[in-house]
Design a binder for these strands. Structure first.
Length: 512
RNA sequence: GAAUCGGUAGCUCAGCUGGUAGAGCAGCGGCCUUUUAAGCCGCGGGUCGUGGGUGCGAGCCCCACCCGAUUCACCA
């Protein structure tokens, strides 16, 4: 035994001994393959098709071959019941010494097969006295020994038909760190992640149908930009340069619009060097989409249609239960200019106020004011505290102060504002979009303003990206762009309270 | 970063005003050929998060630290 290995529990030692005993019996503990013909739910959902109609002569009925993990065992001497869990669910198996042979039954099944081990069985389907659809095993094959015991939760249906779980594997830290175990023993976890994938697929299909091109852009970037955030820094040895992990892919996708694509999108992992919370993981997924010739009003139409489509695809309904609320994604959604939304909740019309007046109002509203907070930041704070949490149903908030939006085009009518919207669901920002700024002179000025903020100590402000400026100097058509937070959308679509519940492997501190 | 709560057997948890660590499941040995939280008889299993301290004596009290959960603050 490897001395570096941590000391083994009694149960781990016993399982290793069983592994040796299997080899001594010439049973391969790790065979190479097994022919699966059916999945558990396929049999259970179509029991009329599979349950034998000739119980007195099983030779005349269908055979099924199923593989998976042993999850429970009930041994009654010369016959036993156990359950197999496969990718779709759990099915019960009935196995008898006289069907599979004394040695295989007594030595291999009874003595050396543990909960968690992989087995394959072939047999026919019947109903037990208590009415459970069960596979009567005629062949049993060992498919993989596990040397570490799984947690052993029990699910029971009580008299009211509710499923009660005993001894659940519930320690959140262990569930996140050992997601593989969480997935095995907590079936709803699998469902959440399947839904997440179907959600992404539905979005991808929706965009593909409209002719937009899925692309890939650099994650390692010499100049990061496209959002206000602190980056992760890394180093390329051969070039001997520092690189940053992208915080957004906006500036690269817009370069592709310059290059002549009409619509491009990317599902992208972005990285922000910030704290963790139930809404924040240092790496997270966005989809960003840029469409030429369009503006932010068009993008609102697009988004509400796409998300309605996603809800229908996943849930078959536009209405989704999220926590205490039922959220209805049926398009169209209300579109409320930011100043109107603030005025409605606070009574203050900020639209024609000076910086000093807004500062005074912010103080009245008990907003935490920090040094160097500009007008835009204060308005954002007021909005975040007084308006955003109240927007449970899907809502577009439109027309943001120019100070907070260095990449958005100036509003066609309203002075001091840009054509930007955020989509708010369940009191949280899910998407951010604008009519993209394509005036290179204006863009340079906005970058320079960012650079000033940066020089004044705002380490989330953007840096001047000369190559991006050069690109739009060559000319970018009118363009609408959007970024949608996939993790947060997945939280809503799966009724999850924490971003960690929709990430297979959320960021954790190192163990130990 | 702050506050609150928590860390005891493989899993879920008890453990009183400090008195030498318990249950169920899981495991091991036996019985049991339609069970289903299967049942019955018997048995083993712990550096009580880590390190200090105060007690004759610490899972429990004190201090420091580690890890986590939740809430709050900043970012999507």
């Amino acid at each position: 035994m490897n001395k570096a290995e941590p000391s083994l529990s009694e149960q781990q030692q016993i399982r290793r001994e069983k592994l040796d005993q299997l080899k001594e019996l010439d049973v391969n503990p790790y065979p190479h393959s097994f022919d699966v013909t059916h999945y558990s739910t396929q049999i259970l959902d179509n029991e009329d098709e599979y349950v034998t109609k000739t119980p007195d002569d099983p030779s005349k009925t269908k055979r099924v071959s199923v593989a998976g993990r042993v999850m429970t065992r009930r041994i009654m001497g010369k016959a036993s019941f156990f359950t197999i869990q496969d990718k779709e669910g759990v099915v019960q198996v009935y196995i008898r010494r006289d069907d599979i042979g004394t040695d295989l039954y007594n030595k291999v099944f009874k003595k050396l097969t543990d909960i968690g081990d992989f087995v394959g069985i072939k047999g026919f389907v019947f109903k037990t006295r208590t009415g459970e659809t069960t596979i009567h095993a005629e062949e049993f094959q060992f498919l993989g020994k596990t040397v570490r015991p799984l947690p052993t939760p029990k699910e029971v249906e009580n008299e009211d038909g509710e499923v009660v779980t005993y001894d659940a594997f519930s320690d959140k830290e262990l569930r996140y760190r050992q997601r593989y175990v969480d997935l095995v023993v907590n079936p709803e976890v699998k469902e959440t992640f399947v839904k997440r994938t179907r959600m992404v697929q539905a979005m991808r299909e929706f965009m593909n149908e409209r002719g937009y091109l899925e692309v890939e852009t650099p994650i390692l970037q010499p100049i990061y930009g496209g959002a206000s955030a602190r980056p992760f820094k890394t180093h390329h040895n051969a070039l001997d340069i520092d690189l940053y992990l992208r915080i957004a892919n906006e500036l690269y996708l817009k370069r592709l619009i310059v290059g002549g694509f009409d619509g491009v999108y990317e599902f992208s992992k972005d990285f922000r060097n910030e704290g963790l919370s139930r809404f924040h993981n240092p790496e997270f997924t966005q989809v960003e989409l840029y469409v030429a010739w369009k503006d932010y009003s068009w993008m609102m139409d697009f988004m509400e249609q796409m998300i309605e489509h996603v809800a229908l695809t996943i849930h078959g309904s536009t209405k989704i239960k999220v926590g205490e609320h039922e959220i209805d994604f049926k398009a169209p959604w209300p579109r409320i200019p930011m100043y109107e939304a603030i005025e409605k909740e606070t009574g203050h019309d900020l639209s024609d106020k000076s910086d000093e007046e807004i500062l005074k109002i912010a103080k009245e509203l008990h907003i935490d004011i920090e040094d160097g907070m500009g007008k835009g930041k204060m308005i954002d704070e007021i909005f975040g505290d007084y308006v955003e949490p109240k927007l449970i149903q899907p809502t577009f908030i439109t027309d943001y102060p120019i100070e907070m939006s260095p990449l958005a085009k100036k509003h066609r009518e309203k002075e001091g504002l840009v054509e930007r919207f955020e989509a708010i669901f369940n009191g949280k920002e899910i998407a951010n979009a604008f009519s993209e700024l394509n005036d290179p002179v204006d863009q340079r000025e906005r970058f320079e303003e960012q650079a000033r903020l940066r020089a004044d100590g705002d380490d989330e402000a953007m840096t001047v990206d000369e190559d991006f400026l050069r690109a739009i100097e060559y000319g970018m058509p009118p363009t609408a762009g959007i970024g949608i937070g996939i993790d947060r959308l997945a939280m809503i679509m799966t009724n999850s309270e924490s971003i960690r519940d929709v990430l297979f492997f959320p960021q954790m501190k190192p163990e130990g």
